[in-house]
Design a protein around this nucleic acid. Structure first.
Lengths: 143, 143
DNA sequence: GTGCTACTTCAAGTCGACTTGAGGTCAAGA
DNA sequence: TCTTGACCTCAAGTCGACTTGAAGTAGCAC
């Protein structure tokens, strides 16, 4: 068998082993067995972890991902849900685009205070009447 | 004076009063005074709240926002930080774009299981070797 | 056979951003 | 004047996604 040790999976997937155990508890992944105490995984788990990461990036919760992917591991995703989420993503993307440009402007803006810059205030005005869903960022800095 | 009652601010900004109190505790906003016990706010607080919302959307934490905006309320944002964040946003935007397209594809894909669709697997493969920062979505559905 | 070390379990802790609950106060309307 | 109800404070709770810590165990090198 070409099963992978948990540490191997952790390394390749770029997540700590504790996360794999956590995902297992949540029913998201499962080891094929144990070597002694140690979990062994089918290499396919990497794909599954990628799917989970993808789902998380798309804004799905772990529970949603668990629900979307059948018990046997085949994604049986509700197509309407996907379409809805794509729409949402599209909105988010547009918002973030405006935001990125705003940040760039703010960084380059010569006004002593951003509040005195008409462009910044305009952006703010647009934001005040538009932003509803606020995406969060995962901590990505050093531990 | 044309100061606004906390309920008025909450209503206009679309946030519960508890959030305003919480933001005050964090040093993000401040009432101009009280009418009896009730907080009164300068209308400018709405702009400030918009700035906070904007910052949150951009992925800044409340603490970062508090640090970025001077005690007197003038944003004195570190320009390098802004540029960095704009870069980050740009990456996120591109990722989300791929993701949106993937979701649309998955929704339309005729394959019985997404895992059997070459396109889906290709996307997954791209995701497995690229995704690092995972943006979170604020719960936006019904309570 | 003996260590070392990386794994194991399980409970509890953390983090950010709020929300909720209990008990209190006060401005305004009947 | 009295009631009402929206505000007040402060502590504690919640939620999602993990992480951490203590105590135990087994595969591998020697």
């Amino acid at each position: 068998m070409t099963d992978l040790d948990i540490s191997e999976v952790a390394h390749r997937a770029g997540v700590p082993a504790s996360t794999l155990r956590f995902y297992e508890e949540k029913g998201l992944i499962a080891p094929t067995g144990r070597r002694g105490l140690r979990r062994q995984y089918d290499p396919g788990v990497l794909e599954r972890l990628a799917l989970i990461a993808l789902g998380r990036t798309a804004g799905f919760s772990l529970d949603e991902i668990a629900r979307m992917t059948a018990p046997d591991g085949q994604p049986s995703i509700d197509r309407q849900m996907l379409t809805d989420r794509a729409e949402e993503l599209d909105r988010t993307i547009r918002e973030l685009g405006v935001l990125r440009d705003s940040l760039r402007h703010a960084a380059a803006c010569p006004a002593p205070s951003h509040m005195e810059c008409p462009t910044f205030r305009r952006i703010l005005k647009a934001a005040v009447s538009g932003v509803v869903g606020v995406p969060r960022k995962r901590a990505s800095g050093p531990p």
